[in-house]
Amino acid sequence: MNVEWQDRARWLGLPILFTRYWMVDETLHRRKGFLWIKEDRIPLYRILDIQVRKTPLDRILGLGTIVLYATDVTDSEMMLKGIKKADKVASLIQNRVNEVRQRYNIHGREMYGAFSGEFERP
């Protein structure tokens, strides 16, 4: 188990929120909560698009929100909020997505249309 990246959600630049993010091998994890815990996992090869959002306050504090759009049934949009150096982290995730897709010979075009029901059988 090789943790390639990990961070916590931040509020005003401080890691005081109970949300953690980490990337292990071919999976991105998000764990939320203190007493009631919810953990989401998304295989990297399912990620279709990555977006980085920054408010003016985020830019001042060096933070950002990374939005991952994926072909996942339970969570087609995963937001990683309050991430330090969000641009570098988004590039790291994109590079890992490309590596995993090449390893398994998966192309993005094979997953397009998954949101519109294009792949459903009659």
Results as ranks from 00 to 15, higher is better:
50 I>A: 09
69 Y>T: 11
23 M>S: 02
86 A>W: 12
80 L>C: 06
63 L>K: 12
101 R>Q: 13
71 T>D: 15
104 Y>S: 07
13 G>V: 09
27 T>Y: 03
28 L>H: 01
26 E>V: 01
23 M>P: 01
87 D>P: 02
93 I>K: 06
93 I>Q: 10
44 L>S: 09
14 L>T: 02
68 L>Y: 12
12 L>K: 10
71 T>G: 15
78 M>Y: 07
79 M>H: 14
69 Y>E: 14
60 I>S: 05
55 T>M: 06
9 A>H: 04
84 K>G: 14
9 A>F: 04
47 I>V: 14
82 G>I: 05
46 R>V: 07
39 E>S: 09
74 T>F: 10
86 A>M: 10
55 T>I: 10
50 I>W: 01
117 G>S: 10
1 M>Y: 01
117 G>W: 12
5 W>A: 12
60 I>M: 10
91 S>N: 14
56 P>F: 00
70 A>P: 05
117 G>R: 11
7 D>T: 08
104 Y>Q: 13
108 G>E: 10
17 L>E: 00
99 E>K: 15
43 P>Q: 08
121 R>E: 14
16 I>P: 02
27 T>I: 14
62 G>V: 06
116 S>G: 08
57 L>N: 11
45 Y>G: 00
118 E>I: 07
78 M>Q: 13
19 T>E: 07
81 K>F: 05
7 D>A: 15
19 T>S: 03
9 A>K: 12
64 G>D: 02
48 L>K: 06
47 I>K: 10
29 H>I: 01
21 Y>P: 08
101 R>N: 13
88 K>N: 13
20 R>V: 00
9 A>N: 09
45 Y>D: 11
75 D>G: 01
90 A>K: 06
57 L>T: 14
106 I>A: 06
102 Q>P: 01
110 E>S: 12
61 L>K: 05
73 V>E: 09
111 M>Y: 03
44 L>T: 12
51 Q>V: 08
121 R>S: 06
1 M>R: 09
5 W>N: 04
91 S>H: 09
112 Y>N: 05
13 G>C: 07
61 L>Q: 10
105 N>F: 01
57 L>P: 11
99 E>V: 12
55 T>N: 02
65 T>G: 05
97 V>L: 11
3 V>S: 03
53 R>H: 11
52 V>Y: 13
2 N>Q: 13
104 Y>G: 03
55 T>K: 04
47 I>N: 05
42 I>H: 00
107 H>W: 12
41 R>C: 08
27 T>N: 01
106 I>N: 05
92 L>V: 00
53 R>N: 14
25 D>K: 03
74 T>S: 14
27 T>L: 05
42 I>A: 06
10 R>E: 13
91 S>D: 15
16 I>A: 00
